[in-house]
């Protein structure tokens, strides 16, 4: 973890309200898939925790949705401008796994951190199945990017305007994906559905944070088994084994 000024190298709109930003920063060399950065947006009191979607040698990429005032401001920034960044923060998805087949499940803004993960699993020669869920056709992003990595990629939209109509679980059923090791990130409803069906793998969680480094106790979650134990989503998380935390 370090604090530094990163330089925006690219900012582009890739889907409805969804932006991709490439940032040049030294901390890129320490990053692992699943981790996040805490970005200061001028004029706002707290930093924005945003997951890392891909890691290159001297740059990294974030993909984010401009939904609140802070992310809207971020979306107006252009190449050449600098951003105050703290990172990388939090836990990552494990890369050294026994399984040869991995099912990656992403929902909406939960999709981005899974891209780097898919990339690294593919480098290790794993078979990677990808199921992505979005609201509608205009929100879909990264389908082609996952496919270019050599992942079998399927998309579901809630309104049926693209791919399978329904959720990622519907897409998994429709395409008869039987892989039982899962890496997921997405809305709570999706994670609950995954936890009902799968027991092996990892999930990434989202929470309102303040410090992002484990000091303030704003983003804690109880342990599912031990009543008195808790985990900080920003520090021990955001990636936890399936069935680890109560949410």
């Amino acid at each position: 973890m370090r604090e530094e000024k990163g330089t925006i190298r690219l900012q582009e709109c890739i889907a409805s309200d969804t932006y991709r930003m490439i940032i040049e920063a030294c901390c890129a060399e320490d990053m692992k898939p699943g981790q996040f950065v805490n970005i200061q947006v001028e004029g706002f009191s707290l930093r924005r925790p945003i997951s890392i979607s891909s890691i290159e040698e001297t740059t990294f990429t974030i993909v984010y949705k401009a939904v609140g005032e802070g992310t809207k401001k971020l979306a107006q920034m252009t190449a050449g401008q600098t951003l105050d960044i703290i990172g990388p923060l939090g836990s990552s998805y494990p890369l050294d796994i026994e399984e040869n087949d991995v099912l990656i499940i992403g929902g909406g803004v939960g999709v981005p951190p899974l891209y780097e993960l898919a990339k690294q699993y593919r480098h290790k020669g794993k078979n990677v199945y990808v199921a992505l869920g979005f609201q509608d056709k205009s929100s879909v992003f990264y389908e082609e990017e996952f496919r270019n990595l050599g992942c079998q990629t399927y998309v579901a939209t809630m309104d049926g305007s693209y791919g399978t109509k329904g959720t990622v679980m519907d897409a998994i059923r429709e395409h008869k994906i039987t892989c039982d090791f899962v890496c997921a990130c997405g809305p709570r409803m999706m994670l609950h559905a995954i936890e009902e069906r799968y027991t092996k793998g990892y999930m990434s969680f989202e929470a309102r944070m303040a410090c992002g480094i484990g000091a303030c106790m704003a983003c804690v979650a109880r342990d599912k088994k031990e009543a008195d134990m808790y985990h900080r989503i920003c520090k021990e998380g955001p990636v936890f084994p399936i069935g680890k935390v109560e949410y």
């Binding site: 706002f44 009191s45 707290l46 802070g70 929470a207 309102r208 944070m209 303040a210 303030c216 106790m217 704003a218 983003c219 804690v220 979650a221 109880r222 008195d228 808790y230």
Partner: peptide
């Protein structure tokens, strides 16, 4: 353990 989440909000 403290309060339920969310525990923080920006102003």
């Amino acid at each position: 353990f403290g309060n339920e989440l969310p525990r923080v909000a920006e102003t």
